[in-house]
Design a protein around this nucleic acid. Structure first.
Lengths: 370, 370
DNA sequence: GTGAAAGCGCTAACAG
DNA sequence: CTGTTAGCGCTTTCAC
């Protein structure tokens, strides 16, 4: 592998001079020498060994990403991180902790030992040891899409409440006033915030809050279907549903169909979370998209900015706004229909099919070249 | 940042000895010295600077992944790669080329300059310069999930044909003999192979090949819906459909519904590609899963094995077998129903809804903590 | 303007 | 068994 000495030899100069042109320090260099060196570099197709550079300069030009769960959200965010890193001449090291704080620790140590210049972390949940380690680190780091208490460093998060408000307001603007919502049990802040957004939107528009049309189900197959069917059997049936995640949304669509009703004809649906498939559903889903890619870009650029400003500023918190993707599952409330009798809910006999599939085989989405 | 000298000083020994314990070379070391050193290391919480180690040892313990398109398939595969790297003490650098061969080149150069020990590459299409660069590289590399001609290095691929055969055979075993298939235009080998598998399965079971029930549609919204409806209007309507990708499968489901028929009651459907949502569809989709995670693991372990065997073996090609996920969209052909008149296809008036949504906003799937 | 020399933190002969 | 020494490939004073 060709080294700086080879270049120096070929060009007939010292390696200091070669180093100067590599690093763009030719303010006081003769045109001639610069030309010779550049030629030699080209001839040898020389590329500096960045390990040696790093050792000397004490910076690696590599950013580390330590994420608790490399799920579909982070997979997309990762692309944003990577793109921004590349744009700025940084490499990206990736590690996943698979929900295990021990592995968070191990990964952070690994990143430190590899001397990454900065760290983007997104642990799955707060953990004292991880916290301590991070604080004892002499490497700049930021949090991304995480929800810890008392974070003392920069972070980028998405404004979940705003996304929920936007979803519900969209329904309100379409003329709906009796809007149900459906959630998984409120075990984490994201879920709570989606409910909070729902409430705020209603309040903002002077709509009453009716606890009977807030359905909270256990996470699991088909629980959403049951909830929807209950909703559809209510005497004063809601005309719209705000479904707070993709899993539930698919249940909602299924439940409505089982009841012999139509989305959006009989009931409008707005979901939360977007995916490649959302536009292909029947009907194409109106849903809140969390801009994962953009979040990744922001996280990387925030960190890089931090790496370049030596003087510490006060921790910054960047909020990414979700975006409502308006497709076809929510429409203007049909006034005439409202006056009429509501369509009758008819339940077929195969009502609540039980699922019993064996999904313990790790594969994953696959949209490749096909 | 604490160095090996600090440890040596604290333990009152030379740094060579410290280096020995770091590297586990204490065959000829007194227990006492070893103890002292290990204590000092613990006291200082010393971790070797792997940049310095790399410079000296000429190996970085980092693997580079250069992928053309970090889509949902690779996102999952990435997790497999990362996991296997971690298990073996390797770090992982990731870069994406976003369909641009120029960026493949740049990324490979970057990886080389960072001195990764080995490379997993998956360029989007064959490209002479990339090929040359790879061959001129003095870094071991393997191909993963790529389909180049004349590859002279190890590779891991999925057996697409076998997956398609399995899907169609499943239908045959359920008693179906008139099985249609639906594909996007045969622009790449993956698509061709899925068709090939379909043909082979029919042939193997002595079933006739009827070109009229092989529907090839342009990629795009709703093209699959039209194709299915044509299929359903045929006098000798097929009793099952092998749909060759997720996009088409959603169209198929929609088309059948629009025709007033039921999956799987009136027609069985087997798809290709699995996703988080496939089990949640209505009905839960029987489909071929490409084990992306497993592929990532295999790729990494193949490469690592290669890194550790210095003596070159002849290039190896590992095939990953797709797995049929049996859920509820394909069932036993109902003999009695077959004897009856086929259910009538009724088309509602909102037949082929035109899509006109604005999907140019990059977001992505999001299944996070909600 | 340019080169010589020191050294980043570590490993690996080679002595002792 | 343990320490001394010579680099790995590069950057960066500091002389010339």
């Amino acid at each position: 592998m060709t080294t700086i000495d080879d270049v120096a030899k070929l060009a007939g100069v010292s390696k200091s001079s070669v180093s100067r042109v590599i690093n763009g320090n030719f303010q006081y260099m003769s045109e001639e020498m610069r030309g010779k060196i550049e030629q030699a570099i080209k001839d040898l197709d020389y590329r500096p060994n960045s390990v040696a550079q790093s050792l000397k300069k004490k910076e690696t030009k590599v950013i580390g990403l330590v994420v608790g769960d490399l799920n579909s959200f982070w997979s997309v965010a990762l692309r944003g991180v990577q793109e921004e890193c590349m744009r700025n001449g940084y490499g990206l090291m990736v590690s996943e902790s698979a929900w295990d704080p021990e592995r968070d620790l191990a990964n952070i140590h690994m990143m430190k030992s590899k001397r990454v210049d900065g760290l983007i972390v997104s642990p799955i949940r707060q953990h004292k040891q991880v916290d301590d380690l991070l604080n004892s680190l002499d490497i700049p780091y930021i949090f991304a899409d995480s929800t810890w208490e008392e974070i003392v460093t920069d972070q980028v998060v998405t404004n979940t409440i705003a996304g929920a408000v936007e979803a519900v307001e969209h329904l309100i603007q379409l003329g709906h006033s009796r809007i149900a919502t459906i959630l998984f049990t409120l075990e984490n802040s994201v879920r709570k915030e989606r409910l909070e957004g729902y409430k705020r939107a209603l309040q903002k528009h002077g709509l009453p809050l009716d606890e009977t049309i807030i359905k909270i189900c256990k996470a699991g197959k088909g629980t959403g279907v049951e909830a929807v069917i209950e909703l559809l059997h209510m005497p004063d049936r809601p005309t719209a549903i705000f479904s707070t995640n993709m899993h539930l949304t698919l249940d909602v669509l299924k439940g409505v169909r089982m009841a012999g009703l139509d989305v959006p004809g009989d009931i409008s649906v707005v979901g939360y979370d977007d995916s490649e498939w959302a536009p292909l559903l029947d009907p194409p889903l109106t849903t809140v998209a969390v801009p994962a890619f953009q979040m990744g870009v922001k996280a990387a650029s925030l960190l890089i900015q931090k790496l370049q400003n030596k003087k510490p500023r006060k921790p910054k918190k960047i909020e990414i706004m979700p975006k409502l993707m308006i497709r076809h599952s929510a429409t203007q409330l049909n006034q005439s229909r409202k006056a009429d009798e509501l369509p009758v809910v008819k339940l077929s006999d195969h009502t609540l099919t039980k699922e019993k599939s064996n999904e313990n085989h790790q594969t994953g989405a696959n949209s490749r070249k096909a």
